[in-house]
Design a protein around this nucleic acid. Structure first.
Length: 511
RNA sequence: GGCCGGUUCGUCUAUCGGUUAGGACAGCCCCCUUUCACGGGGCAAAGACGGGUUCGAUUCCCGUACCGGCUACCA
């Protein structure tokens, strides 16, 4: 019988959550929900030196923004609490000890300085990074080289020590990765990783195995950067006697820099001018705020969508998916093996598609907040709704609404008269003066009627309407953009329209 | 250096031995639009290289090259 699907996202709360992290969460979540399983968030805060205040709360805010709700987490509780490794500290040591007793791990008393010395001493051109492995452990200070009395004495004297796994010599460790198929390693190539640190905290290697076992994780997804340490984890499952419960592994491809190469990192964002964090991250140490996708004007639906398409597709040409569709169609075997370079232009396209497809009323609150942040108060929802409907097809990012909507609420601060001045003449001046008086008498104020009136007046003066449209647009909008000019006219109302027409008319000079 | 993973248009990708190698983003052109977009149409653009296996390889195998990851008492 298959056990229940239980997956976990195990971030380290050291800063903002970037693209790759969110995608890992997403794939975990999609898989869990599709399989009717549980999605667990476990905080991997075993490195106390890297603790960053606020990072954990940030992670949950990000998940919430994306519409991802954990079934179990330090915030949501659950049967396997606590979900913070720092709070689980007492349970790791016993397993480390168990491994020492079974001969699969050992005490190592080497100080950081001694380790450093070893690395420089054994460093050669052929071996630029000497490892604490089956070979070198024989020249280090550990319970394998020291005699039992000495070890006992050091332990009794509270000498700092770590516990390292004792990697076997020349054994083949193979496993089937859900994405990559069979992967195998020779244990002689793997070093004796530290399992328990001198401060009593486990390293990731021990903690991930102990907790995945304790939390009954069935499938473990993580970034490809973890592949090289997979044999350590697999051996640990075996040594701890839990092999039958080991989760299925899936190492996700990495998200790469758009230019050059390498893993996408937070720095690439500022360098290339796009966000890498999901949401704004405030770095207290550097005292700087790094805007995320949310602040750049991305809809969470679009963000989730574009992330899912980075390395996965459903085999058809469909590219726009809702979360529910993703849950329904997601499949591990359609995850691409190679890393993907992040393309911000394509990311924006997803957002544009989502803005187009999202009904105006669903956009209302977001646009309203946008204006509120700009110090503009929107009182009339019906009016705003109408405007959103008029301009949303030309917005790529939510923030574009500001530029696209501004002229609806207030007179433009500047008018691009340069676009019409060269062709301005007495005839046009006469026309606009005349049409203004016609408009003054016009009622009701409806786009179609205004257009008819406008064109009739043009015909009366034997002018081509086309020559007059741009001037009218400049008068109302200030520039060469925006929806249909008579729609704008109707929306801003008679008073504003006439005011702007008169204003620009006074700005234009007859040549 | 060693180990592991990867390799289809500039980018994201489809193809599960037989296709004019398809789609999308970006680029260019045209149409629509008396603005800017949206939309529609079109152009250009790819199997890293060398060996096998096979009637037939982008697809399977090997090698090479290149790219990436790891090589911490970080995750």
């Amino acid at each position: 019988m298959n056990k229940k699907v239980r997956v976990r996202f195990a971030p380290s709360p050291t800063g903002g959550l970037h693209l790759g992290g969110v995608r890992t969460v997403l794939f975990n979540y999609l898989f869990a929900k599709q399989q009717g399983g549980d999605f667990i968030v476990r905080i991997e805060d075993t490195d106390q030196t890297r603790f960053v205040a606020g990072a954990e709360a940030y992670i949950f805010n990000t998940l919430a923004w994306c519409g991802i709700v954990p079934d179990e987490s330090p915030l949501h509780g659950g049967p396997h609490a606590p979900y913070r490794q720092s709070e689980r500290k007492p349970i790791y040591a016993q397993y480390a000890l168990q491994l020492v007793e079974s001969g699969n791990a050992y005490y190592a008393f080497d100080t950081p300085d001694e380790l450093e010395q070893m690395r420089t001493q054994y460093k050669t051109v052929e071996n630029p990074a000497p490892q604490y492995n089956h070979h070198l452990r024989s020249v280090m200070r550990n319970s394998l080289t020291l005699d039992a009395d000495e070890v006992a004495r050091l332990l009794a004297a509270n000498t700092p020590y770590v516990i390292r796994i004792k990697m076997p010599v020349d054994e083949s460790i193979a496993f089937t990765d859900m994405i990559r198929g069979e992967v195998s390693f020779n244990t002689s190539q793997v070093d004796d990783k530290v399992l328990l640190k001198a401060d009593g905290m486990p390293t990731y290697h021990l903690a991930v195995v102990v907790d995945d076992y304790a939390m009954e994780i069935s499938h473990a997804f993580r970034g490809e950067e973890w592949l090289p340490s997979a044999p350590v984890h697999i051996l640990l499952w075996k040594y701890l006697g839990w092999e039958a419960n080991m989760p299925q592994w899936a190492h996700l491809p990495l998200i790469l820099k758009p230019d050059g190469h390498g893993k996408l990192s937070k720095r690439d964002g500022d360098r290339l001018g796009f966000p890498v964090f999901a949401m704004e991250w405030i770095d207290a140490n550097l005292n700087e705020t790094i805007a995320g996708f949310k602040e750049h004007g991305f809809l969470p639906e679009a963000f989730v969508n574009l992330l899912a398409m980075l390395g996965w597709n459903d085999g058809t040409d469909q590219e726009i998916f809702t979360m529910d569709e993703l849950i329904e169609k997601f499949s591990m075997d359609r995850i691409h093996k190679a890393g993907a370079k992040f393309d911000y232009e394509k990311a924006k396209w997803f957002n544009q598609e989502w803005i187009k497809r999202t009904p105006a009323n669903a956009l209302l609150l977001r646009v309203k907040n946008l204006f509120t942040a700009q110090g503009i108060t929107m009182a009339d929802d019906a009016q705003l709704l109408k405007i959103i409907g008029l301009v949303k097809d030309r917005c790529v990012l939510l923030n574009d609404f500001i530029g696209q909507c501004g002229f609806f609420f207030k007179t433009p601060e500047s008018f691009d008269t340069a676009a019409i001045q060269p062709k301005w003449d007495a005839a046009k001046n006469e026309f606009f003066t005349a049409v203004i008086s016609k408009f003054e008498l016009q009622s009701p104020w409806i786009a179609a009627d205004l257009e008819i009136l406008f064109k009739e007046q043009a015909a009366a003066l034997q002018l081509k309407p086309g020559e007059l449209m741009l001037p009218l647009r400049i008068m109302l909008v200030g520039g060469k953009f925006g929806p249909g000019v008579f729609d704008i006219a109707e929306t801003i109302g008679k008073a504003a329209m006439l005011e702007r027409m008169n204003l620009v008319l006074s700005l234009l000079e007859l040549s």
